[in-house]
Design a protein around this nucleic acid. Structure first.
Lengths: 101, 101
DNA sequence: TTGGTATATCGGGAAATTCCGATATACCTT
DNA sequence: AAGGTATATCGGAATTTCCCGATATACCAA
C-alpha cells in the first residue's frame, strides 16, 4: 500500500470521522442488525451513512477508499456489509509517522 | 489546526518526501549557504527544489502548505529561507493517530 | 418468482488540487 | 542606484476529488 494513499484516505473530514467512529462503535452507533456485534464484525454501511448525513453511494465509496488504505476491513452477513477498524493498518500508519516523518 | 489539513498536507508524494528529507537533512542535502547548519535552521528552498525536480513556485507553495499544517517551520537568513521539520507538529500528528483513530 | 432491503457501481457537474511560467518582492553586492 | 540571486505570489490549464442521483447487484422473505 502506497503511503500517499493512506494519507489521501484520511484527508477528508467525513472519512476521518468514520475511522474515529469505528474506533469506538458502541459509543457512536445503535445495535446492529442480524444480531451482529461490534467487536466481531463492526458496523453496517447503513448506520454509518445515516450518521454521516451524506448519500448512500458516497459513503459506500468512502468506505472502500478506507478499506483500500487498509484502515478498515469488511464482512458480509446476509444483506449487510459490516465495516470495522483494522488495528494493524492504523498501527502501520503510526509507524510510518514515527519512523519516516 | 484542523486535523484534515494535516492529512491533506501529507497526501501528496512530493510533500511526503520533503518531510522525510527534512527528518535527516544531512543524509539528503549538501551543505547550506550562508554557513547555516541543518540543526539550527534547516534546509533552504533552492536545495529542496533541486532535489524534488519540480518548479520553484510549486515547491515554495508546497513548503507553505507543510508549514500551515505545523509540520515544518521556517527561518529567513539573508536572501535564503530555511525550512526544517517541526518536531512538535509531527508528534501531535502521532498523537492524533494514537488517540483518535 | 416477485418484491423488498442493503450495498456497490456508474456517469457526471462542481469544486479543489496539481503544477507550471510569469511576475513581484526581498535582500545582497558593487 | 543597478543588477543579480532567492523566494513568494499570481493566473491558469489539466487533473483529481467530492458528492450526488440513477441504476445494478446481492440477498432475503413470502
Amino acid at each position: 500500500m502506497d503511503q500517499v494513499e493512506i494519507f489521501k484516505a484520511l484527508s477528508n473530514k467525513t472519512r476521518l470521522q468514520i475511522l474515529g467512529w469505528l474506533k469506538e462503535p458502541a459509543a457512536h452507533f445503535p445495535e446492529q442488525p442480524a444480531g451482529a456485534d461490534f467487536e466481531t464484525v463492526g458496523v453496517c454501511v447503513g448506520q454509518i451513512q445515516i450518521k454521516s448525513g451524506l448519500s448512500q453511494s458516497t459513503i459506500s465509496e468512502y468506505l472502500s477508499i478506507l478499506q483500500r488504505a487498509d484502515l478498515i476491513s469488511s464482512t458480509r452477513i446476509g444483506q449487510w456489509t459490516y465495516y470495522k477498524r483494522n488495528k494493524e493498518g492504523v498501527e502501520k500508519l503510526s509507524e510510518i509517522i514515527n519512523t519516516a516523518l
